[in-house]
Amino acid sequence: MSATSTPISPTSSSSNNASGEKQAPTLAEMVKQLNTEKLIEFLRGEDLQLTDPHFEILRKEEISGRTFFKTTKDEFRSLGLSFGPATALVEFAKEVKDKKLRAFSSYRTLKDFKEVLAKYGIDSNCITSIPQFQPGLHALDEKDEVLRHCISDILLKLENMGTVADSNEGMRREYISSILHASVRIARKITGKEIIIRLEQEIIGEQSSGRADYGITDTEDLLCVAEGKQNLPAIGFAQNLVQLESSCQTNLKKQKKRKASDAFGGDDYEYLYGIVSTGTDWYFILYTTEGIYCTSETEYHISLTKSALKDDADLKRNVKKVMEIIVGLLKDRITVEKAPDAKRRRVEEKYKSEH
């Protein structure tokens, strides 16, 4: 079953377990919320061998997500669907009812992280065991207006909130947001492309679903997913990797729905970038459908202490370095051609010699 990018809220139907933790909803609970057009969009992304005339019948009869599950094979046939499509829809409805999605937030132990890495052939629970890559930079002028505004914003927050507290994840996200928003603004300016940052980006994949702290998108696809963490980068890695996996599935589903004139053949290659940050420490992930890579052996650190109010030279230098990486990653991903083989070539050309 493929991923769906349909904008439905998993939190509205989820339930709590005995400990009070919110559980991931079933896919059926999500599909029940779809109107007719969103249901058709969802079904188009599945390999059901349905064609436009079949979907037109669903549209004409105003079949929504809720009525989809209640419609029998005989009823589908009475609406004008032949035996094959009617059977496919009913069988798929049964499959959807049994599909359980795991919440991103449930990946919160080193054991979970080890299980995530095992999917990529890595037998470890250490972030430095992930193959490394060297991200490309986009050099920024120290006098860049957006960069200077970002520095001023960080200094203002240091003055108002004080040194970052280890236990305060909300404070850390204040600084992460400043850097991400500034980086996206610069990336928009240099590429001329529409890049948007979305807070609490909802992502629904084949196995996992939930909300990422930040999703950076263009008009069609997710480009980068960022996760802010308190002081546990391994847990941030675990969650970000499953977010990236689900995001790749979402992007690939969109590609399959494009017109035949834009079809890219049977290749399902895709890549995105991930960011895991504690506000002070920044890690970057290259996620491809053929492997994962990161920067865990290279230090990207921003000291967020009140001492920067007296001497901000180190702060400026390190914020600039992190922003140059983020802008470079966004520039790379937004300018690559949409075709999967072009994306594979881009990754091989930029990083293959380092792997």
Rank of each mutant, 00 (worst) to 15 (best):
T219P: 08
P53D: 07
K256E: 13
Q49A: 06
I203W: 01
T280V: 12
I216C: 05
D262P: 03
Q207S: 09
T278I: 10
I179P: 03
R77D: 00
E297W: 04
E75H: 09
Y214L: 08
L309H: 04
A88C: 03
S261N: 07
E21M: 10
I190M: 08
D314S: 14
R185A: 15
E159R: 12
T36A: 07
S64W: 05
N251C: 14
S2T: 14
E324Y: 04
T289I: 04
S12V: 15
F68P: 07
T217I: 14
W282H: 04
K257A: 15
K38W: 10
T295Q: 02
T26F: 01
Y271P: 02
S5M: 05
S183F: 00
S78E: 14
R346P: 01
L81Q: 10
L79S: 05
T217Y: 10
Y273H: 13
T4K: 06
H54C: 13
S124A: 15
V225E: 05
D311M: 12
A103H: 05
K32H: 08
R173V: 06
A187G: 01
E200H: 07
M323G: 09
E227F: 12
M171K: 01
V184C: 00
T26W: 03
P131D: 09
T288D: 03
D221Q: 11
C294H: 11
F284M: 09
Q23H: 07
G45Q: 03
V96C: 09
K100D: 05
L89I: 08
G205N: 08
G215K: 00
E56P: 02
G45T: 05
P233N: 11
R172L: 10
L199S: 07
Y175M: 13
K306W: 02
K70E: 14
G162I: 15
K229V: 05
Y283P: 01
S353M: 05
I235H: 12
T298P: 00
S208T: 13
V146F: 02
L330R: 11
K193Q: 15
V116R: 05
D144V: 10
A260C: 04
Y175V: 07
F133H: 06
C248M: 14
V96K: 04
L137D: 08
I195S: 06
M1R: 05
G205T: 01
R108D: 15
I325L: 08
